[in-house]
Amino acid sequence: MSARNLIVGVDFNRSQPQICYYEKEKENEVTAPMKVGNDQVSFEDIFDELDQLESSGSAELSEKPEIMKRLIENASETFRKSLATLGLDDPERQISGIVITVPKLRTQEVALIRGIYRTLGLDKVRAYLQDYKESFYYHTLYQDREIWNRNVGFYRFQGRTVTFGSLVINTLTRPVTFHFAEGMSMELSDKKDMWDGQFCEMIESTLNTGVYSGVIVTGDTYNRDWSKRSSVMLPRNGRKAFIQEGLFAKGACYTAREKAVEKRLGNYLYLGEDLVRTNIGMEMVVQGKATYYPLLSAGINWYEAQKNYECILVGEKPELKFLLSGIEDRQQKLTVMKLPGLDLKSRPAGTMKLGIRLSYRNAGCCVIEVEDLGFGELYPSTGRKWREELTC
């Protein structure tokens, strides 16, 4: 395989991870289980530890870096071996775009996936991450337009559990927007001969409440052997319906194609739950004039939003003022961050230099970290640091 020629999507989950890769020259797409040799890969232990890290208290914070380092090493080694099993023995050279998708993106998953990318030598300009819902969005929009010109229904089978959701389109906005709406779920009977009737009832309760141009079904327990009646109901009223195996790996692969190569969805925007919906900025004095300085813009996912900068604090109060405005209402809100213990009178005006870092814990929580940088050799740093969380 030639250098930088492969697009890869990975469904990174506990027990049935999958890889989908696309070779640009041949326009050939392959989806396969993640294996090392002939053995199916499992990440059960890694996800168990991620759950523990996510729920651990402050007393265990000191242990987190070492635990995460070990998890990154173990997961990266498995990824490397699994890619090699498929002939991708040099990811840094062979991959031009990759997306890893997980059921839900939490802080620990973000750290783990970014660590895997670093270990494999994959930089941020070609390595992305997202949750299952966003993978469903990209998978859907890479299908024929007639499937998604209205809402798209989605049924997912996991054992005897069936969940319903829908990709909702809003054609009145520019760009056209989509969001994923959670729906009902149900537990199928332990008697398999009842499944068809139960699924028929679920279809009646879900698809009859809106206008759907398409329906997609995925999951390990759905098949046409038991779904004689329900499979006839799915495509009624002009709906396009189909079963898709390996949907999340394929969706991740389509995302990588879109972001790294094709860029054909520029007129559409996915409003996912990971999307930052608040603009954050500051009023600054630049060349003697008060100017609004944008720091973080709405419209990107929280795990991609961060800003590092330096500024000179002036004025009489040890505080920073941030201006927040929503992506929908645009109304500005002033938030003041106090810097207790910072003595502005201890240095001449114009020498109080601060280092500021903004990042997100999730889509609704921005973390601001501030550090006294000092001012050269004349005014060394006091070492003081401040931290505050903004609800956005």
Rank of each mutant, 00 (worst) to 15 (best):
N301P: 00
Y309G: 10
E328D: 11
I356A: 02
M352T: 07
K333D: 04
E388A: 12
F375C: 14
G374P: 00
L358W: 01
E319A: 11
E388N: 10
P348M: 09
L344G: 05
R387P: 09
G315F: 12
V367L: 10
T382N: 00
R387F: 02
I312A: 07
L334M: 12
L324S: 06
E371W: 01
S297R: 11
Q332F: 04
R330D: 14
R347Y: 06
Q306T: 14
K338G: 09
G364S: 13
R347Q: 12
R384T: 09
P294V: 13
S346A: 13
E388Y: 06
Y379Q: 01
I368A: 00
N301D: 15
V336I: 14
R361Y: 04
E319W: 00
E310A: 10
S346E: 11
I368C: 07
S381D: 05
Y292E: 11
E328V: 14
K317H: 08
T335Y: 08
W302E: 03
I356L: 10
E369N: 05
L313P: 01
M337N: 05
K353C: 09
E388Q: 14
R387Y: 02
L342K: 03
G315C: 08
Y379S: 00
K353S: 08
R330K: 14
L323T: 13
C366L: 03
Y309M: 15
V367I: 06
E389F: 01
C366A: 04
K345I: 07
A349P: 13
Y292C: 07
I300D: 13
S359N: 06
Q331E: 13
G341L: 07
N301M: 08
R361Q: 10
L378T: 12
V314K: 11
Q331D: 11
C366D: 02
V314L: 11
V370E: 04
N308E: 15
C365V: 14
S346D: 12
L342G: 07
P318G: 05
E328Y: 07
G326D: 15
R330C: 06
Y292I: 09
M337R: 02
A298C: 07
P340I: 08
M352K: 12
P348R: 07
E388W: 07
M337A: 10
L339H: 06
V370D: 03
K353M: 15
W386I: 08
L390D: 02
R357L: 07
E369W: 00
Q306P: 06
S359R: 14
